[in-house]
Simulated assay, not measured.
Amino acid sequence: MNDGFLFHRKTREVLNRHAAEGYAVVVPLAATEQHGPYLPVFTDSIIGNHIALEACRKASSTMKLLLAPTLTIGCSQHHLAFGGTLSFTSSTYLAMLNDIGESLVRGGFRKIIFLNAHGGNEPLMHQAAQDLAVKHDIWTASSSYWSLSRTALNEQNAQDMGMVPGHAGGFEASLVAALEPDWIEAPDRAAQPLHPQRSWINAGPAGSFVGKHGQLTGADGYTDGYTHADAVKGAECLQSIIQSTASWLEQVVNWMNERMEVEG
């Protein structure tokens, strides 16, 4: 199986050569945080790492692309009250993303892409991508997997499993069940709410934030129940997410390459 796109498998000499050859670097972002009473705290990292790995495997077959190691701790301050969470503050996390970008720039790379799997990381990821592009003569891009695959997931009626992506609900449970079923504690489906709990995730129009102290992840740390979780459908959704993400990576890198040729 092709794994020649993995940044961490290379020597410094090979990476220096790849930087000079114009390779883009994808930096996957995830989290280690509470996911309700049944899903593992590594949920976002399980899902995010798989998507990044398989999407980059596809995209790297047609372009110069490297996948950095997944950053498995993110900005999860709103989960700390529930326990089972490792987190950086927002200021620390933003600084870390900028430092990772600075490291790649110092290493000669001029195309940096952040790929995210945890909602709390998203605004800081976009800010870091912008900061790096303002400071250096490089190209950056950033997105979360659910944004890239929204159309495909809607076509698959992924919302039938639960809020998409939600937090620790039916949708994420379906994805984890497709990847690591043994990591899920057997849920009492009858005890889970059928409908999404009130939370910032579904409050207001897209792009808005509405929140209250202590209620940023649902009343008990999850947004919806597992009643309609489905491992088979979860596997189908993962394939759509991977394809959507690979297509986006190809589009973004090709666009970067075209612009760089124009600019000389």
Rank of each mutant, 00 (worst) to 15 (best):
K58G: 10
K58C: 03
K58T: 10
A59N: 10
S60L: 00
S61A: 12
S61E: 10
M63D: 14
M63R: 15
K64D: 13
K64C: 07
K64S: 09
K64T: 07
L65S: 03
L65N: 04
L65K: 02
L65T: 06
L65H: 05
L65A: 06
L66E: 09
L67F: 10
L67D: 09
L67Y: 06
A68C: 06
A68N: 07
A68I: 08
A68H: 13
P69G: 13
P69T: 13
P69W: 13
P69M: 12
T70G: 11
T70E: 12
L71F: 14
T72Y: 15
T72V: 15
T72D: 15
T72E: 15
T72F: 15
I73V: 15
G74N: 05
G74A: 05
C75K: 14
C75E: 06
S76W: 08
S76H: 04
S76Q: 09
S76P: 06
S76T: 12
Q77N: 14
H78M: 13
H78R: 13
H78W: 08
H78F: 10
H78N: 14
H79P: 01
H79L: 02
H79W: 09
L80P: 05
L80Q: 09
A81N: 13
F82H: 11
F82G: 09
F82A: 04
F82Q: 08
G83A: 08
G83F: 05
G84D: 10
G84Y: 03
T85L: 00
T85Y: 10
L86F: 13
L86Y: 12
L86T: 11
L86Q: 11
S87C: 04
S87K: 09
F88E: 04
F88D: 04
F88Q: 03
T89Q: 12
T89Y: 12
S90H: 14
S91D: 14
S91N: 11
S91I: 11
T92H: 08
T92D: 02
T92R: 02
T92S: 09
Y93D: 06
L94D: 05
L94E: 08
L94T: 08
A95R: 13
A95G: 11
A95V: 03
A95L: 11
A95W: 12
A95I: 04
A95M: 11
M96P: 00
M96S: 02
M96K: 01
M96W: 00
M96A: 08
L97A: 01
L97I: 02
L97V: 01
L97D: 04
N98I: 09
D99F: 04
I100H: 00
I100M: 01
G101A: 10
G101M: 07
G101W: 11
G101P: 03
G101K: 03
E102I: 00
E102K: 04
E102N: 08
E102Y: 08
S103C: 08
S103K: 04
S103M: 08
S103G: 07
S103N: 09
L104G: 01
L104C: 01
L104H: 02
V105G: 05
V105M: 03
V105T: 06
R106M: 00
R106V: 00
R106E: 06
R106W: 00
G107A: 01
G107E: 07
G108M: 03
G108K: 10
G108R: 07
F109E: 00
F109R: 02
F109M: 00
F109I: 03
F109G: 02
F109S: 01
